[in-house]
């Protein structure tokens, strides 16, 4: 309590700290504000570099062009499918595996744990993995975005740590009711772990949403491209947006607003959903930090 009294003083160090934190916040927020502003601004202002914080000559033409682009929609749909199918699948496999690993009585428990932890420090590398994925016939298929990266060892270990912390009594009551381990897992453990499952599920979802690597390595068919690839093609490989992206004159939309609009369109869902899910993410990071 002594401390609180002392800290109420508005000292110079505390002022500096507050300023520093404000600077951090500004550095995080500003790029987004800037991108949104440019994407909404009129050409004249963009050309003269007059946008620094707020949009000028507000219009939505860049967004009209971007949203008319079929590639954006196709890839959006693909990404949603990858996330929608991949995340639950990963979650299920991870939870089941982690549960088994949390049971000391499972045969080979030690071997399996070692085997899994080892992959965190050493792996076959890009090309051997590519060849395996290829020989499984996954290259250029829907599943190449889901299966080769289905389990994150980190998440698996977090889950296992969590399951280790569950009270044994719960499961024993299940055993008395004549449930097998699978039954206990499905009927007792899973319902009790919804918060952790949500956390890990979200990590998987974000991972798949942001996954560019798998698409780069395994996908050639543009009908399967996830959002990240299309985004990269438009923003960095200068593949223009359809329907007017390459016009000059009356219908011209400048390069920067177009690219910024593309970035915003593909990032907004994440930014909108994030504040509501933040507590789960934080929780996940904390489970991970508990040494287990």
């Amino acid at each position: 309590m002594v401390r609180t009294r002392l800290r109420r003083k508005w000292t110079l160090p505390r002022l500096l700290i507050a300023l520093f934190l404000l600077a951090v916040t500004a550095a995080t927020v500003y790029p987004f504000l800037y991108m949104i502003s440019v994407s909404l601004s009129g050409d004249v202002y963009v050309i003269k570099n007059e946008i620094s914080l707020l949009p000028k000559g507000v219009n939505f033409r860049a967004y009209e062009v971007v949203l008319q682009d079929a590639r954006i929609w196709t890839s959006y749909r693909n990404t949603i499918l990858y996330v929608g199918i991949g995340a639950p699948l990963s979650l299920l496999v991870t939870a089941a595996g982690a549960y088994s690993l949390s049971k000391k009585e499972m045969a080979f428990n030690k071997t399996f744990t070692l085997m899994i932890v080892f992959t965190m420090f050493f792996n076959g590398g890009m090309i051997p993995t590519f060849l395996v994925v290829k020989s499984l016939g996954l290259v250029d298929s829907f599943w190449s975005m889901i299966v080769p990266s289905a389990i994150s060892t980190w998440n698996l270990i977090i889950m296992r740590t969590f399951f280790l912390g569950l009270p044994k009594e719960l499961e024993e009551s299940g055993k008395l009711d004549g449930l097998t381990e699978i039954g206990i897992f499905a009927r007792i453990v899973l319902p009790l772990s919804t918060a952790s499952l949500a956390t890990i599920g979200l990590f998987y979802a974000v991972g798949i949403w942001n996954n560019f690597y798998s698409a780069l390595l395994y996908l050639r068919n543009d009908q399967l491209y996830p959002l990240q690839v299309v985004l990269r093609n438009i923003v960095m490989a200068s593949q223009m947006v359809l329907n007017g992206g390459s016009n000059v004159g009356d219908n011209q939309v400048l390069d920067e607003p177009l690219k910024y609009a593309t970035i915003i369109v593909s990032t907004v869902p994440m930014l909108l959903v994030y504040p509501f899910l933040q507590k789960y993410f934080v929780k996940g990071a904390l489970i991970g930090s508990v040494k287990g």
């Binding site: 050309i47 200068s238 390459s246 016009n247 000059v248 004159g249």
Partner: peptide, 29 residues
């Protein structure tokens, strides 16, 4: 290409070298 088109169409570049049909590409619109 797009950045160059932007420069040429917004009075930020006045001399260029490109495919001949670019005269019409710019002049008409």
């Amino acid at each position: 290409t797009k950045q160059w088109q932007d420069l040429m169409s917004t009075d930020r570049a006045f001399v260029t070298v490109d495919y001949i049909s670019r005269v019409d590409f710019y002049n008409l619109p």
